[in-house]
């Protein structure tokens, strides 16, 4: 690693101020991506602003039809939270399937969303559930938040505070994972709410995306059979040593069907 300065601010305002006033600074949440990337010298920030002291951002709560998860809630905390398990079990089980146990003990939902890795799990959940990402200055709909590969709508000095997730009638996540990294070769989150059905895909493309054709079909008939005939174009999908674009396209339809079946089982 290249040398850097390190600070643990005591408030969100202080953290954002440091980020605004320092060239090449980075927020450090769980560090499960940032530190390995720094070790490879693919990132060399001048300052790490460690958010560890902002304990209030680890809270998980529910009020009315909304589940609120603090940006610094670790994956293990989301997976094991009775509040999450009771309201959106699909989100708890998604969190339980991220990386390995030690990654889940450190990694945070805010860090995952800000990183927006195209093969990460949480972006699919936020997009399918129609979550709102609240930052230090505004609230961003998931539909506007994820803007491409490792890209988000966040401004350079903007910090995620919490996510606000509408509790769906039913939801499920299915992923075909790369067995060593546990990243999604393809993953599909399906959520059925009063105002419609949303289907979000991760791992298959350059960033998380929705499947409007599947959503329309499922709004009329929320069964796996409704979407088995909806093929996904392979154009533009990821192709690498794990899977071809055509295989990923095939997986999306299969996984979406399984997610609907799983969601029906839970509803």
């Amino acid at each position: 690693m290249h040398p850097f300065d390190y600070i643990q601010p005591g408030s969100v305002a202080e953290a954002v101020g440091l980020m605004r006033d320092t060239a090449d600074a980075r927020f450090l949440a769980g560090g499960m991506t940032l530190i390995p990337v720094m070790k490879q010298r693919l990132a060399a920030p001048s300052l790490l602003i460690d958010l560890a002291r902002l304990a209030e951002l680890r809270a998980i709560s529910a009020k009315g039809g909304t589940l609120t998860i603090g940006a610094l809630a670790r994956h293990a905390a989301v997976a094991e939270s009775p509040v999450v398990q009771a309201r959106i079990p699909a989100l708890a089980s998604l969190a339980a399937g991220i990386g390995d146990a030690q990654v889940r003990n450190r990694g945070t939902i805010g860090g995952s969303l800000a990183n927006n890795d195209p093969v990460a799990d949480y972006p699919a959940a936020m997009l399918a559930l129609g979550a709102r990402i609240r930052t230090d200055r505004r609230c961003i709909d998931a539909d506007a938040f994820f803007t491409g590969m490792f890209a988000t709508a966040l401004e350079p000095d903007e910090m995620i505070i919490q996510v606000e997730v509408p509790v769906p009638e039913a939801a499920a996540y299915q992923k075909f994972e790369q067995p060593a990294s546990h990243y999604a070769v393809a993953g599909v989150m399906v959520a059925k709410a009063a105002d419609g059905v949303r289907v979000a895909v991760t791992g298959a493309g350059s960033g998380v995306f929705r499947m409007p054709a599947m959503e329309a079909a499922l709004a009329d008939d929320f069964t796996p059979a409704a979407i088995t005939g909806i093929a996904v174009p392979a154009d533009g999908l990821n192709a690498d040593l794990h899977a071809s674009a055509e295989y990923r396209a095939h997986l999306v339809t299969v996984l979406a069907g399984r997610a609907v079946a799983a969601a029906m089982g839970r509803s």
């Binding site: 390190y6 560090g31 499960m32 530190i35 293990a76 390995d100 030690q102 990654v103 003990n105 450190r106």
Partner: peptide, 27 residues
Amino acid sequence: CDTSQCGACVVHMDGVSVKSCSLLAVQ
């Protein structure tokens, strides 16, 4: 592996297992 995959470096921090090759001492 020194790339947070193999788990040979697992220790406990505040009672939970973590990979010490992916944590800074200052953390």
